[in-house]
Design a protein around this nucleic acid. Structure first.
Lengths: 120, 120
DNA sequence: CAAACACTAAAGCAATCGCTTAAGTATCGG
DNA sequence: CCGATACTTAAGCGATTGCTTTAGTGTTTG
């Protein structure tokens, strides 16, 4: 299978972790909070009703995904968003969408010309 | 539809399933394949090296997330992408990004005055 | 210094996940 | 009608996840 139709795939292991990180509601809530500006880990934990240990684990997942960046000064670790990570995710989604729309355009031509077999 | 209260948060359970669905490499590969056009479940399974049962389960997850739509005619179930699902995901990501950038603008003003967190 | 504070690291546990095998249920082809 | 095809359903299993508790480490603060 020469696969002229599937040129790109699995380009980044980054994407794996990004979507996995975003697949958890708690983590998304943390991201939404961080989009308002950087906060410390314990501040992040406050509205979540979880132990600090649990929140630290979530922060680790977010940091490994590249969506969040943290820095420790003194005894406080401050977390903030890393826009590049979001760009990667948005890019992947955009690619699927544009491929799909491209394909819809071609389908339009086929329908105009007459109907034929669509997949073989 | 608009809930009075917060700006927006956890608006849709849809998002949960979308990101969770996209968090799996096999499912993303299936989506990439589907972005080239609709295919049957067994056709989808072929390049994946999995049992048909496993692929059916993945298709179910994708369908429940709203990213994929399927239709069964005769004994064949055909799968295709559902652009609306991707729109929802892209929208969520875009919101976090724009909030963050908005916030960066304000930060620029603060930096003009000095450095440090504005927290307390 | 001693106590409070903000994490950090490790162990353990129930629930979920991704997968398999095995046994169905409808079509379709001859 | 009989067999192949294309799923469908259910059970089960090992790995991963999200959490907790417990016990640290390093940092302020009185």
């Amino acid at each position: 299978m020469g696969s002229a139709g599937g040129p790109m795939q699995g380009r980044k292991p980054e994407i794996e972790r990004i979507f996995r990180a975003l697949g958890d509601a708690t983590r998304r809530a943390m991201v939404e909070r961080l989009s308002e500006g950087p906060v410390s880990v314990s501040r992040l934990a406050e509205p979540l009703g979880l132990t600090l240990a649990a929140v630290v684990q979530h922060v680790q997942v977010l940091e490994e995904s590249g969506l969040v960046r943290t820095e420790k000064v003194g005894r406080v670790r401050t977390c903030g968003l890393e826009p590049a990570g979001f760009a990667a995710a948005a890019e992947w989604i955009g690619e699927q969408r544009s491929l799909w729309e491209m394909r819809l355009d071609r389908l339009g031509e086929l329908l105009a010309g007459g109907k034929g077999s669509e997949n073989k």
